[in-house]
Each structure stands twice: as structure tokens, then as C-alpha cells.
């Protein structure tokens, strides 16, 4: 995982769990108290999203555009994507840099947590009564000690707006 240079530096800790060769790494994030994780292959970097330019007339999920080292990145709010209300006051907006069909996206989250190493075999399917809005974005659930971890489907998270029609 690359660290961002211009925005402030975030240290993503190494997983504390035992490492096995077939375990995979999942950077975790938190939104409204819920822990979620993304497959590490899809995560480019983590950065502080400062100065987001709002885009009038854009779909709701898009928070705006931001400048990441000279590249224009489309900021997508994970909260809005999950149908959650916006956070009232944010001092530092954290974003996870993703690449989707050759374009750069920043997924805005409340907090960025550590990188966990998890056994892909331990992934459980979504509970049947999970909110369909959430279920559509989730690959499945991991049971951690005292917590449940949703594994996000990055393509699904970024499939909204005009593209959904095309797909």
C-alpha cells in the first residue's frame, strides 16, 4: 500500500492476527460504527481528503472532486452509498483510493483502521435479512472477536449512476 505524500500520512498497522500463506489482507474502515473491509488488491492508498470541490447536478453518492498529487479523483461517500446520513462535523475526512475501470476514485469513510489478515474460507454469506442496499455492496461477513466485518465489493460500491444503466 502506497502512502500519500501531499496529504497527511496515515500509518496503517500490520495485522495482529497470525499470518498464514493463504490468508489475505484486508484494510478496514469504519462508517457509522460499522467495520468494513476492502480487498487489498483494490486499495491504492489512503489519504486525507481535503478541499473537495462539489459537483452540482451530480448524483448524490458523489461528494465531489479532489486533487490527489495532480490527479483529479472522484470522491464517493460510502455513507451515502449505504444510505446513511452524512456525518455532522468532520475534521479530517479520510478516503481510500481505488481504481475502477481506469479511473481514480476516493471512497470517503469515517475512519481508517488497521489491515487485517483473514482466511478467505471463513467468509460467511450475507445474512438473508440484511438490508438489500447493504447486501448489494457486500461480498460477505467475517466474524471477528466481538465484531462483525463486512467485506465490501468494490465494483458494486462504484457501480451507480449512469454506469449502472450501461452495465
Amino acid at each position: 500500500m502506497k502512502q500519500d505524500n501531499t496529504n497527511s500520512r496515515i500509518v496503517v498497522g500490520a495485522g495482529e492476527m497470525k499470518t498464514f500463506a493463504d490468508y489475505r489482507e484486508y484494510p478496514t474502515v469504519t462508517v457509522a460504527g460499522q467495520m468494513l473491509a476492502l480487498p487489498i488488491e483494490r486499495v491504492h492508498d489512503v489519504f486525507v481528503a481535503s478541499e473537495i470541490t462539489a459537483v452540482p447536478l451530480a448524483s448524490r453518492e458523489i461528494a465531489g472532486l479532489l486533487n490527489l498529487r495532480g490527479r483529479v479523483v472522484t470522491a464517493v461517500s460510502l455513507r451515502r452509498r449505504l444510505g446513511l446520513p452524512d456525518l455532522e462535523k468532520v475534521e479530517r475526512r479520510m478516503a481510500v483510493g481505488l481504481e475502477h475501470r481506469g479511473e481514480a476514485f476516493g471512497l470517503l469513510v469515517d475512519e481508517v483502521g488497521e489491515v487485517l489478515k483473514l482466511d478467505p474460507d471463513a467468509l460467511q454469506p450475507n445474512p438473508v435479512h440484511m438490508d438489500p442496499e447493504w447486501a448489494a455492496l457486500s461480498q460477505g461477513v467475517h466474524q471477528l472477536d466481538g465484531k462483525l466485518l463486512i467485506i465490501l465489493d468494490v465494483d458494486a460500491v462504484l457501480a451507480f449512476g449512469a454506469e449502472v444503466r450501461a452495465a
Binding site: 478541499e51 470541490t53 459537483v55 452540482p56 447536478l57 451530480a58 448524483s59 458523489i62 465531489g64 472532486l65 479532489l66 486533487n67 495532480g70 483529479v72 472522484t74 464517493v76 475501470r101 479511473e103 476514485f105 451507480f160 449512476g161 449512469a162 454506469e163
Partner: peptide, 21 residues
């Protein structure tokens, strides 16, 4: 971005000298 291309009022975006988009 492909997510914004349907908005016919904008033809693109740019980064100004002060770094703002």
C-alpha cells in the same frame, strides 16, 4: 469522470494554480 459525464453543463475539470479542482 465517467460518473459525471452525463452532466451536459460541464465539459471537464482542471486543477488551478492553487491546487483546487
Amino acid at each position: 469522470s465517467s460518473k459525471l459525464r452525463h452532466i451536459q453543463l460541464f465539459s471537464g475539470n482542471t486543477i488551478l494554480g492553487d491546487g483546487a479542482v
